[in-house]
Nucleic acid binder design. Sequence first.
DNA 1: ATCATGGATGACAGCGCTGTCATTCGTCAA
DNA 2: TTGACGAATGACAGCGCTGTCATCCATGAT
Lengths: 340, 340
Amino acid sequence: MEKTRKTTLSDVAALADVSPITVSRALRDPEKVSPDARARITLAIAQLGYVPNPAARALASGRTDVVGVIIPSVSNNVFADVMRGIYDGLQDSQLGVQLGTTRYAPSTEEQLVRVFLSQQPAGLIVAGHDQSPGARALLERADCPVVQIMEVGPQPIDLVVGLSHYQAARDGAQHLLDSGYRAPAFLGAQMDPRSQRRLAGFRDCLIAAGLGGDDPVVTTPEPSSVSLGCRLFADLIATRPQTDAVLCNNDDLALGVLFEAQRRNIRIPDRLGICGFNDHEMMSAAEPPLTSVATDRYEMGRAAILQIRDRLAGRGQPRGHAIDLGYRLVPRRSTARVTP
Amino acid sequence: MEKTRKTTLSDVAALADVSPITVSRALRDPEKVSPDARARITLAIAQLGYVPNPAARALASGRTDVVGVIIPSVSNNVFADVMRGIYDGLQDSQLGVQLGTTRYAPSTEEQLVRVFLSQQPAGLIVAGHDQSPGARALLERADCPVVQIMEVGPQPIDLVVGLSHYQAARDGAQHLLDSGYRAPAFLGAQMDPRSQRRLAGFRDCLIAAGLGGDDPVVTTPEPSSVSLGCRLFADLIATRPQTDAVLCNNDDLALGVLFEAQRRNIRIPDRLGICGFNDHEMMSAAEPPLTSVATDRYEMGRAAILQIRDRLAGRGQPRGHAIDLGYRLVPRRSTARVTP
DNA sequence: ATCATGGATGACAGCGCTGTCATTCGTCAA
DNA sequence: TTGACGAATGACAGCGCTGTCATCCATGAT
């Protein structure tokens, strides 16, 4: 296989009988080139199969068309939905994505921020607002739009798209109380900062309801899974048989609770209420359908990209702008207790 | 905020009192630099907070440290597992990932291949072996390692890590027959090429068993989901009430079938056997636990990256090398019929 | 002492593109 | 007719790094 030199701007320019600069302009800013020249250039590009070299462009212009995305994990389906939103938001743009995963380690996150920023990205999307001081300093100094997603909170670095996990979980807990449950518990895995705030919302709800003496919480740092939901629920009722409802940190756990309850012939919703978090598609399909606090992960990703695109187009929101996508409690049969 | 010029190799060189070339070498090939100089350079780098410019490196060397990954979708948890394997395989390497999603569209895939190749990646990972002729031609001409994942098949482009979906599904169907089911059906969504081959395996198994007269298959091009499993199963038993088992194209559908069967009080496994595909973690947690054909998506991603790393290190496998990760039938209660 | 050897280092040019001017030319108002 | 103006185009230099050679010097064999 012959090592054929790649065709360059100059090749195109020669064929189209213009200067390389004009070709460059025709590519980036077609308006600025006469229709005549533009046509010849387009033809030449097609004939030569020319593809621009992004490294050269990046070096010369100090910009790339890549948006860096830094999330804790790809195998968490919350982030899968976010990514889908990001890719959809990218449609009809020149932008690409570079993805990094932190595995929930702040030091890894900081390193990724450093690496990504060194590539002079068009924008950066990071999950959460619990960056290490170092990472935060880097991001504040970044000369590209930075979007913190997942969560709204104090002191945004630049742009924010998220929701209040505290409030969402607090409302979920309140829903359990409103449905007549008197001894709700919290089940949590992978207790990242957002999970911690959900837990705080749960606790405050109980305190506000005068049920604060106890702390019916079972958590683990393990990654979340359906099986883990089974195990945590088993632990929970072993130590607190009086529990009559569970607020789960996410839907996987809720599904595990459902299965474990079925195994033990615990009747849902009468003997046990179940509320998940996120409202993954499967929640409505389950038997009984499972109540959950719906979050719009897809829109979170999509909105983040659109914020960046707006900024790049010069009509973006100012630094500090936050979009609160909110949440929605979706009551289903799993908490529809007939007699309190 | 002052636009501070980034520190460059020359700045480091000046501080360390060596030439820029030596700094460059110290970074890429520390062995070739004297310990003395290396120490001064390391110190200077730390003092200046120097971070190399990957665009400049890419332009000068014609190489990048980025592996392109082209998959159909990120929200399919099969690919989420693959991605996790990829990121784990990347540990302790300089490599990064650029991810593109095709949305199951061959034209999008071809375009992504073109764009990614223009970035002169360190390697490329693509899902499946049903690339368009154009994409295939580009990949064959690529001067970087190319790994086709998910599936083993004829005429590999370069390297392959996968399994035979045909055989895996055929074994799944055979398991249903061996368990005493006489009228198994196939449920499929998002009928991509791999799903088609699974379906073919199912059909051939039935034919081989003398049950080929009929074609008990319900499929849809819609993306897979648990709810869709419910609906497809409802359709199935409406048109073919005699069905006594289902082989599902994936685990989401299987879970949907379970829920729908529960809703209709169809007893599992006696009245209905359920077999999924992939053996997602939730399958073992379900009640009853669900039989599935296990595939090692994680290892698929990991092995793909390791193949690329080996190649880059000069000790890789030759073109055409394929790794068949196989599959494993995991029988559980959902197909454990007591009386055939 | 002399020369070949190889490790360490450096000079030079250039990767392909774009920012910043400068230049050309046609058009229109005065 | 003239000058001013703006659209279209081009020349030049340089982004930060690396490939390819060339150079230097200590070492050990002769």
